[in-house]
Simulated assay, not measured.
Amino acid sequence: MPQRTGFVAIVGRPNVGKSTLLNRILGQKLSITSRKPQTTRHQILGIKTEDDIQVVYVDTPGMHKNQEKAINRYMNKAATTAVKDVDLILMIIDRTRWTDEDDMVLEAVKQQRAPVVLVVNKVDFIQDKNDLLPYLEKVSKRHTFDQIIPISAKTGHNIDRLEHLIESYLPENQYFYPEDQITDRSSRFLAAELVREKIMRQLGDELPYAMTVEIEEFKHDGRIIEISALILVERASQKRIVIGEAGSRLKQIGQDARKDMELLFDCKVMLNMWVKVKSNWSDDERALRSLGYDDQ
């Protein structure tokens, strides 16, 4: 059988479950997740190769209206460029709630030539399943979507059906990536993202988006990986929050991140972390570029 390969963009407003969906499809954790909106800040490719089919998923930051800081503008740009030149767009929305930001995503999607499948996520939360059909009918009037499919990325409900649907849109093509490759991102990038996820999960609203992580050292001697991670915050008060009472919080973040890294890299990990204040990094174009927020 001929090989079929294509690019599929996963787009939506913040916190609708785009990264959870990608991780579910890949069967492993690649994109970081938390309950906080805007957890994903970069485009990240997740590659799934099975039988004669290779799907290259593009996970994107949530499109949002807040454009105040350079980092917000960067995230919106990363999301809008991801939908160009793909074979299929999956627009993810939350069950039974359509917002202004969904309108914004839809406007960006309408300007593309690729077919659009509307994916209604988190249907496992709907108490009365009879509420779902009228909602699906209502959203179908917003745009002529190629398909509408309800799923739960968290429980895996209807994911098989979604994957079969995706495959039907893929053109005949040689694989773009080796069969065993699952992402275009470096191990360094993935390590930084895992540390950032743990901070976001630990700190909730205390330290929203004024934090980023830079990997200063990543050494692999075949048996053990040594990683040095620098956590950057914008104010001294935030530094105290990340470190916690007698370093307790930083220690917990480190333990949680190390566990996930050992799973991901299939290797023992030694993780060292520091916290440093770099004021206003999130609104400084040059600082953002040096921290890897570029137009990849």
Rank of each mutant, 00 (worst) to 15 (best):
M1S: 14
M1Y: 08
R4P: 00
T5L: 01
I10W: 06
P14E: 09
S19V: 05
N23H: 11
R24D: 03
L26C: 07
I32E: 03
T33I: 15
T33L: 10
S34G: 08
R35D: 13
R35S: 06
R35W: 07
K36A: 10
T39Y: 11
T39S: 09
I47K: 02
K48N: 08
V55W: 01
V56F: 04
V58F: 04
D59V: 03
M63R: 13
M63F: 13
N66C: 00
K69Q: 13
R73A: 02
N76K: 08
T81M: 11
T81K: 14
K84A: 10
L88Y: 03
L90A: 06
Q111Y: 00
R113T: 09
V116C: 08
L118I: 06
V119L: 07
Q127N: 15
L132Q: 11
E137Y: 11
E137K: 15
F145D: 03
D146V: 08
I149D: 06
I151T: 04
K154Q: 12
G156L: 10
I166R: 03
S168Q: 14
Y169P: 01
E179F: 01
I182A: 01
D184W: 09
R185C: 01
F189A: 03
A191E: 03
A191N: 04
A192N: 05
L194E: 05
E197W: 12
K198R: 15
L203N: 13
P208M: 09
T212A: 11
L232E: 02
V233Q: 11
E234W: 09
R235V: 00
R235K: 15
K239E: 06
I241A: 05
G247W: 14
S248F: 10
Q252R: 15
G254K: 09
Q255M: 12
D256F: 14
L271S: 03
M273H: 09
V277A: 10
S279A: 14
E285W: 08
L288P: 01
